[in-house]
């Protein structure tokens, strides 16, 4: 009975691989540059081919040399570069790697050309129109992205952005934080309400509101409401409180409540003298879509 053939060839089938500390740090760019310099026999010619500069190419080559730990080129008397024996042998090993790297770059390029998915998100109230739709009408992105829209409530926008559940979040009263980037898209106009109905005779400036007889309805991050209250004080209003959602503390029937009005387009400045909540787009700092920030800022300025 040949039991040997019934048995696994090895105790453990898992392969041994080194960890990051034991691996040289090689990059796609270094490989490209190495091939080009071997082919061209000079840093300057390789720079021409790769549309770079001689010092750049030389630096990348030196980094590569440091990573592999051996000299790659020797300068001939006529100043052309001769690959060392090591470099020549290394070239014979690079076939599969350079082929697979080319496949990877091509697939990345085709994903870019197809248009990458861009996930916009906003709290439910913004989908009612006005503010949000006006902005989107001006945003030109369909050349590079395929946008889609998600509803994410304001209390979890930060985590949703950091977890890459969505790419850009739109909201009112968003406060800057250290891992997120903010694009200001303009001020949100106020609606004045009194006793539950919209006020027709609006005070012409903040100072005209009866002292202590007004509220602002909170939205977004809490510090935003605080800073608007302060700004209204600076503009001459006195007193005033923040109306929190679901709070027992409610305005009396003769008191004015300032609500942010998401049904009107945003106002670029503060021309009417009323400080107000800002409409902003938020995204993760160093978002993989590097051109995104510029696109959003472009619309904000327009």
């Amino acid at each position: 009975m040949k039991i040997g053939y019934l048995l696994p060839m090895n105790e453990v089938t898992k392969k041994i691989h080194p960890d990051i500390q034991q691996l040289p740090s090689l990059t796609l760019r270094q490989m490209e540059v190495f091939f080009a310099v071997c082919r061209e026999g000079s840093y300057a010619n390789a720079a021409l081919e790769l549309r770079s500069t001689r010092p750049n190419i030389k630096r990348v080559c030196e980094d590569f040399q440091k990573a592999v730990g051996r000299p790659l080129f020797e300068e001939r008397p006529d100043r052309t570069l001769q690959p060392t024996t090591f470099a020549n042998e290394l070239l014979t090993q690079t076939g599969t790697l350079s082929r697979s790297l080319r496949h990877l770059t091509e697939s990345v390029r085709s994903l870019h050309e197809k248009g990458r998915i861009l996930r916009f998100a906003a709290a439910g109230e913004l989908f009612k129109g006005g503010l949000f739709t006006d902005f989107l009408a001006r945003l030109r992105i369909s050349d590079a992205f395929r946008p889609c829209f998600l509803r994410i409530e304001a209390n979890r926008y930060r985590i949703a952005l950091l977890n890459a559940e969505c790419d850009v979040y739109f909201g009112a009263g968003i406060v800057a934080s250290n891992r997120l980037e903010l694009v200001d898209l303009g001020g949100i106009p106020w609606t004045f309400k009194q006793g539950g109905s919209v006020l027709t005779k609006i005070p012409s400036k903040p100072a005209d509101m009866a002292s202590g007889k007004w509220w602002i309805a909170e939205t977004g991050d809490p510090p935003a409401s605080e800073s608007i209250l302060q700004a209204l004080h600076l503009a001459g209003a006195s007193g005033g409180r923040i109306l929190k959602e679901n709070s027992a503390d409610q305005p009396a029937n003769d008191e004015i409540v300032l609500h942010h009005d998401i049904t009107s387009p945003p106002q670029p400045g503060r021309r009417d003298g009323w400080p107000s909540f800002r409409f902003s787009a938020v995204l993760k700092k160093q978002h993989p879509y590097s051109e995104l920030m510029a696109r959003l800022t472009g619309v904000a300025l327009a």
């Binding site: 990345v108 994903l111 998915i117 977890n163 890459a164 160093q286 993989p288 879509y289």
Partner: peptide, 11 residues
């Protein structure tokens, strides 16, 4: 960032 792609979703 290098690829300009979103590769992973964390939760």
């Amino acid at each position: 960032s290098a690829a300009g792609l979103i590769l992973l979703e964390r939760s």
